[in-house]
Computed example of a mutant assay.
Amino acid sequence: MPNVLLIEDDPAVGEGLALGLRRHGHRVEVAVDGERGLTAFAAAHPDIVLLDLMLPGIDGFEVCRRIRAAGGVPIIMLTARGDDIDVVGGLEAGADDYVVKPAQPRVLDARIKAVLRRGTPGQERQRESHGALVIDRAALEVSKGDTPVALTPTELRLLLELSRTPGRVFSRQQLLELVWDHDFLGDSRLVDACVQRLRAKIEDRPSAPVYVRTVRGFGYRFGPV
């Protein structure tokens, strides 16, 4: 039963979502602003955070950046619109996924389960090296040289899927299905933002990637190095 931290400033919305998620088996703590959300995050160590972007005081973008800086806890942002700059800003701040409000508890339940599954992918191979990059699929660890690379569950799943078949080209839609479990025409911004964050962690020069390469007009492929 995952522990969920819901940061939502509208009391009615927050309590309604919390009640619905509890009926789906989640333990939910609600914080009504960014400052209380960060305090609750530090104290409760949740498994996942549901974060409204439009918060009083410390806004959702800053809350997202601070939570992401503290570690790899998954973040699903709640946004009033799905086609504006808020989505891009939230993804760049480190969110793993987003849901457009008004959000239904069953939709959030499905997204929560999908995000948490990303931390437990298949372990068909153990340890593999790609140049300086070492991927241990059994331990779910990545290192570059002798230095561990801290990845979020979504970044890790993306790297595992891409590196499973080096040289294969994946469309953004294929990656949405494999990594985000979005089996409908999803938002390619999720993929592009995650690729940017992953490159920043594993590439020597993110602007000239060696591992995660763009196939213009189609998607991405891994190496080969």
Rank of each mutant, 00 (worst) to 15 (best):
M77H: 13
M77F: 15
A80K: 07
R81D: 06
G82H: 01
D83R: 12
D83C: 07
D83E: 15
D84S: 06
D84W: 02
D86K: 06
V87K: 08
G89T: 08
G89L: 04
G89F: 00
L91K: 07
E92K: 12
G94A: 02
A95W: 03
A95E: 07
D97K: 01
V100S: 06
Q104K: 15
Q104S: 13
R106K: 11
R106P: 05
V107D: 15
A110V: 03
A114G: 11
V115K: 09
V115I: 13
L116F: 00
R117Q: 14
R117V: 04
R118S: 02
R118Y: 08
G119H: 00
P121Y: 01
R125M: 09
R125H: 13
R127A: 11
H130M: 01
H130T: 04
H130P: 00
G131S: 03
V134L: 13
I135V: 14
I135P: 12
D136Q: 07
A138G: 12
A139L: 11
E141G: 12
E141I: 08
V142S: 00
K144N: 11
G145L: 08
D146A: 11
P148E: 07
P148Q: 03
A150F: 15
L151G: 01
T152E: 15
T152R: 14
P153C: 03
P153I: 02
P153W: 05
T154D: 02
E155M: 03
L159V: 09
L160V: 06
L162M: 08
L162S: 01
P166G: 13
G167E: 02
R168V: 11
R168I: 04
R168E: 12
V169S: 12
V169R: 06
F170N: 03
F170H: 09
S171P: 01
S171C: 08
R172V: 10
Q174I: 03
L175A: 09
L175Y: 03
L176N: 01
L176R: 02
E177H: 12
L178K: 13
W180D: 14
H182S: 13
D183R: 10
F184G: 01
L185E: 12
V191S: 10
D192V: 14
C194M: 11
C194A: 12
Q196C: 06
R199I: 10
A200H: 11
A200M: 09
K201L: 04
I202H: 11
R205Y: 02
P209S: 06
Y211F: 13
Y211Q: 00
V212Y: 00
V212T: 00
T214M: 03
T214V: 11
